[in-house]
Computed example of a mutant assay.
Amino acid sequence: MSTSCTSSISLLSQRQPWLWAALLLLGGPALAQDKVVFATNWKAQAAHGGFYQALADGTYKQYGLDVEIRPGGPQVNNRPLLPAGRIDFLMTGNLLHSFDNVKNGVPVITVASLFQKDPQALMAHPGQGVSRFEDLKKAPVVWVAKDAQFTWWAWLKADYGFKDEQLRPYNYNLGPFLADKKSVQQGYAVEEPISIQKQGGFKPQTFLLADHGYSTYSTTIEARTDTVRKNPALVQRFVDASIIGWVNYLYGDRSKGDALIRRDNPEMDAATIAESVALMKSLGVVDSGDSLTLGIGAMKPERIKDFHDKMVRAGLYKPGEVDLSQVATTQFVNKGVGLAQKKKLVAP
């Protein structure tokens, strides 16, 4: 391919990422793919399914991307790799990470949120007089991991009146919760309820924090600020392809994505993945609220401010400590990407 042709294609990919994808779909010439390394914050699981789907079914390739997914894990911290330039995009848990980045001057920014609801939840035994979220604060024991004690637990105390006297350390062992029917435990709403049903033989009552005011976005994609400034088309293509991947994973044939998940995490079985996907759908974790009209990945500045203000009230940040204009950009989302594909997949 001539130098002039290569330059023209590169310019097309930056100015018109959709035309780039169309050219590939129509059987255009073999084009060089942009190498992208995308790191997650934990081992492969259904909660990462849309990214694996986009890799497995060729969506990333259709958008001119050669994507490597680099899983996280208990002994793997991928967060420092993004500002260091060793990865291109990072999947993080929620906006607290983004607030901390701005507070500490880390040159990264959130470019999309694949989950409209944070899956963090509190779970209770059935038949113990817990019928409302507010009843949970009456539990004598609440099992909470150390990191959560300094994040959403502070919000629960400020907004719902939970007390530190209830706290017990949760070490990701279900045994203590299963043994104490009066206790409450934190959990990832698309994972722990499945394990509790398998080990305890009962379905726990699950209360999403997101349904009760914990308004953070979750499973966000972060990019370096210089990437957003210098190569916005690359960011756009990665965001768009990831959104399409999530649409296909939730509403289409996800078998290829599941196969890659199990390749990267052999401990994950097909039944657990299926149950987790069902929970993501029933709880509206990925596709609810604004994403129904703006597309998966949607973000709004006013919601980011709402969550920030709650965290200030909870004492996690001081007023004015975080410049919200640097936390996230909506230039790559809210465009309805994936809505047409979803309509085709869910049509009767």
Rank of each mutant, 00 (worst) to 15 (best):
L90T: 03
K61Q: 15
H125L: 03
P74G: 12
I87E: 03
M91D: 08
R168S: 13
D66H: 10
G58L: 03
F38A: 10
A44T: 08
K138M: 15
L136F: 05
Y170P: 12
P140R: 02
R86S: 09
P169Q: 08
N101P: 02
T151Y: 01
Q62C: 13
G85Q: 00
H125M: 05
L167C: 09
L90P: 03
E68Q: 15
D135R: 05
L82T: 01
N104M: 11
M123H: 04
D57H: 08
A139L: 05
Q149V: 06
L122E: 06
V102C: 06
A46R: 04
P140K: 06
G73Q: 04
F89N: 00
I87R: 02
N78P: 06
I69A: 12
T40V: 06
V102R: 02
A56H: 07
I69K: 10
V108L: 01
Q120G: 11
G58R: 05
M91T: 04
A145D: 15
W155K: 03
D118V: 12
D135G: 06
G85V: 00
G72P: 03
E134Q: 12
F133I: 04
K137T: 05
P169W: 07
Y60K: 05
F89Y: 11
S98P: 01
S113C: 09
F115Q: 11
K43A: 14
G72N: 04
K157N: 02
F150H: 14
P71G: 11
W155Q: 04
T59I: 07
P71W: 04
L55H: 08
G50L: 04
L65F: 08
Q120I: 13
A158C: 00
L114E: 07
R70V: 14
Y170N: 14
K117W: 05
K137D: 06
N41C: 09
P126T: 05
D147V: 13
Q116I: 07
D88Y: 00
Y60D: 07
N101M: 10
P83C: 04
A39E: 05
A54E: 08
L82W: 01
Q166I: 10
P119M: 01
Y63N: 12
G127V: 09
K138D: 15
P74T: 11
A56R: 10
K137H: 03
L96A: 04
I87A: 03
L136A: 03
Q128Y: 04
Y160F: 13
P107W: 07
P71V: 06
Y63P: 07
A39Y: 00
V108D: 10
L90M: 07
F133W: 07
F99N: 05
L95V: 08
F99H: 07
H48V: 04
A139W: 00
Y170A: 14
D88I: 00
P83D: 08
G127M: 05
P74Y: 09
W155I: 01
H48L: 13
A124D: 04
S113F: 02
M123A: 07
W143L: 15
D88E: 05
N94Y: 13
G161T: 00
I109A: 09
R168N: 11
W143P: 12
L90V: 02
V144N: 12
M91A: 13
V130G: 02
T151S: 12
G50T: 10
V141C: 11
Q53H: 11
Q166A: 06
W42R: 14
H97D: 15
D57P: 10
K43V: 13
R79H: 13
F38D: 06
F115Y: 14
W42C: 13
V142T: 15
G72E: 09
N94D: 15
N171M: 14
T40H: 10
Q62M: 14
D164K: 02
